[in-house]
Write a protein that binds this DNA or RNA. Structure first.
Length: 134
DNA sequence: GCCAACGTTGGC
DNA sequence: GCCAACGTTGGC
């Protein structure tokens, strides 16, 4: 089992919208590093959902329901998408501030590479954030 | 809203 | 193949 973190600007796709949709196609990724993570995702993998900009909070847990397939938003075959579903809505969102203050999370890619939209997490990072989220 | 940081593009 | 210029992202 691998752990991931996916990120969007809430203006582009908010957690509230995801809760309504329950399931979504994670497409439009146009960055090689993020794309490589998408390709490594396996059905059943867990990921955290983070809203950037105005929110800057991890909102909940999602699960991979379909592994990488060609991104439907482009004919360019370099890019892929995955399908995700909502697994759990955090009782309490975990803010970027909390993540920055936490010792366990000091090496997290979210802080080191703030512009990356899909990234791997270690099991302990995933466990710590879910703990903070209740 | 600003701007630093980063990734991408394109001229050479 | 290098690197300056440009566009985008996201924290502040």
């Amino acid at each position: 089992m691998n752990y991931w973190l996916v990120k969007t600007d809430p203006e582009a796709y908010s957690w509230e919208q995801f809760l309504k949709d329950k399931k979504t196609v994670w497409d439009g990724v146009r960055n090689y590093q993020a794309r490589n993570s998408l390709k490594e995702m396996k059905t059943g993998d867990m990921a955290l959902f983070y809203n950037s900009r105005e929110e800057r909070k991890v909102k909940g847990i999602v699960r991979v329901t379909k592994e990488a397939f060609p991104d439907p938003t482009t004919t360019d075959e370099r890019w892929v998408a995955v399908e995700l579903k909502v697994e759990k809505n955090f009782k309490k969102s975990v803010s970027l501030d909390e993540i920055k203050k936490d010792k366990v999370l000091s090496g997290i890619t979210l802080i080191k590479q703030s512009r990356l939209s899909v990234m791997p997490l270690t099991e302990s990072e995933f466990a710590r954030i879910t703990e903070l989220g209740g």
